[in-house]
């Protein structure tokens, strides 16, 4: 149903090593009701698909020559069913405090990265942020974070191989689980 596209090229931001997430959300907020977004990135921005999906956008991703990606976000009418987990996943990390703890889990055997992250979170105060580097998307960790009431924001770094996740500890942790 969307015919026109606003264009946003975040490749320069990514190449500088900066985080384009905020810029993308600004661009989405500024779209006209019948407008879609044409996004250029240096990697396939998978986490964004879910975030914008929860705002009612469908996507079409095309790999360009040279390994860059063009993604067309169209308004699909209804927002994707907002699973409680997705709401947490969609957290905008911009307002979060600086990470209180950082860990590099890239060289650990699975599932050690998940074990260490969950153990570290248990020692942190509510509202503190943990930053962790991983070598792949932590797909089995995320449901556990959601169950424990933590919010997170994760994406592949511009190198395409390091996945960086920021986790903001939630206040209502289930101590009895």
């Amino acid at each position: 149903m969307t015919e026109t596209f606003a264009e946003l090229d975040v490749r320069p931001i990514l190449r500088q090593g900066d985080e384009p997430f905020e810029k993308i959300l600004e661009a989405v907020a500024a779209l006209a009701p019948d407008q879609g977004l044409r996004l250029y990135a240096t990697f396939k921005p998978v986490p964004l698909f879910h975030v914008l999906g929860s705002k009612g956008f469908s996507y079409e991703a095309n790999e360009l020559d040279g390994g860059d990606w063009e993604v067309l976000f169209r308004r699909s009418g209804t927002p994707a069913v907002a699973e409680p987990v997705a709401a947490a996943a969609a957290s905008d990390a911009a307002g979060w405090p600086k990470p209180a703890q950082q860990m590099d889990n890239r060289d650990l055997d699975p599932p050690e990265p998940m074990v260490r992250i969950l153990a570290a979170l248990e020692t942190m105060e509510a509202g503190q942020v943990l930053s962790a580097l991983l070598c792949r998307e932590p797909i089995f960790l995320l449901p556990e974070l959601a169950k424990r009431g933590h919010a997170w924001h994760g994406a592949f770094e511009p190198d395409g191989t390091t996945y960086k996740i920021l986790i903001c500890t939630g206040g209502h942790r289930d101590a009895a689980a």
């Binding site: 998978v46 986490p47 879910h50 699973e83 987990v85 997705a86 996943a89 998307e137 932590p138 797909i139 089995f140 960790l141 995320l142 449901p143 556990e144 959601a146 994760g154």
Partner: peptide, 8 residues
């Protein structure tokens, strides 16, 4: 990204 749960 909402992750993957266990297949029953």
């Amino acid at each position: 990204m909402i992750g993957v749960s266990l297949s029953r």
